[in-house]
Computed example of a mutant assay.
Amino acid sequence: MKNKLVLNKELYSYSYIGQAIMVYKRLTDISVIEDEKYWICEFDNCKYGIDRTKKEFENLDKMYQKINQSLANEVLAEVCEMDLYKFETLIVDLFAKMGYGKLQYESHVTRKPGDDGIDGIVTADKLGFDSIYIQAKSYNDTSVGRLDIQKFVGALAVQGAQKGIFITRSIYTKEAIAFVERNLNYKIVLIDGNRLADLMIEYELGVLTQYIYQVKQIDRDYFSEE
């Protein structure tokens, strides 16, 4: 006769099921039935237990993600309030934090005629190999469309380059994203406002670490019998 364990899908992920069912200290083969709200796990002649510690870790991870998302929203709001000069400085600082090499970034005010479409050049490493061209748009409420990306690709072609990074504080239209995905001759990385905020958090630009928690677990090897 089969036993049955019912798990609420809002509380337990599919990957968690393997941790939830134990058979004399080893995992058993199980069949999982999915309905709208529950994972229904059926198994033969076994005992099972739910690892409550893992559940607590999942809750902690969800809280961490929620805090980070709130922080990202705050960061993006601050970035959108920056004037053009401060936004350009942010780009220079971010690439430095990310470990890129020499960055040549020309202000929109001092750019030479005919340089439309290229705001700066960054090297992929500190030795100066492999130049990557940068275009930044300080849009807040206007989406970056396919035409903007096409102009950038055209500017890359004039420079004889194939790699570029396009940065905006807003978002990209579906047409712009599709154009980049189809254009295999050029490697274009699109960074929108949300991705920009995430990178600033990841590389600790404009943010400070407030708390650090160390989560420890038991060392089974220490207590195991040799």
Rank of each mutant, 00 (worst) to 15 (best):
Q150P: 00
L196P: 06
Y14W: 02
F95V: 05
F223Y: 13
L147A: 10
W39K: 00
S143E: 13
G18M: 05
V180M: 14
T53C: 04
D115H: 00
P113L: 04
A155T: 03
V207Y: 02
M22S: 14
E175M: 05
R26G: 00
I40A: 11
F166A: 07
E106D: 10
K151F: 00
L11K: 15
K86M: 01
T209A: 00
A157T: 03
K112W: 03
K137A: 02
K55L: 15
Y222I: 04
A124N: 10
S138H: 13
D148I: 06
S138R: 07
M1N: 09
Y14T: 01
I132V: 15
R111Q: 10
R195D: 02
M82K: 00
Y100R: 10
Q150S: 09
A136K: 06
A136H: 02
E78A: 14
F43C: 07
G49F: 06
E81K: 15
G18I: 02
V207S: 08
E204T: 13
G101S: 04
R182H: 13
I177P: 11
Q217W: 10
S143T: 03
E225G: 00
I212W: 06
Y133I: 06
L147V: 10
N59I: 05
L76F: 11
A161T: 00
I21M: 01
L103G: 07
S224E: 08
R220D: 13
I188V: 04
K216V: 12
V158H: 06
M1H: 08
R52E: 03
S70Q: 14
V32N: 06
E78N: 15
G101I: 10
L190P: 07
G164M: 08
K163E: 12
K216L: 09
N185C: 08
F87I: 01
D35H: 01
D93S: 01
G145W: 11
K62L: 09
V180A: 10
T28W: 06
V75C: 09
S131F: 13
E36W: 07
E202F: 11
Y203D: 03
T53A: 07
I67W: 07
E42M: 02
Q19W: 08
N194P: 02
V75I: 15
L71T: 13
F87D: 02
K37S: 11
V158S: 01
I50T: 05
D44N: 12
R169A: 08
K86T: 06
Y16D: 03
N73L: 12
F43K: 09
Q69K: 15
K216G: 01
G120C: 03
Q210C: 11
C80T: 06
R220C: 13
T28Q: 08
Q65I: 14
Y16T: 01
L196G: 08
Q210V: 15
S31H: 12
I118W: 00
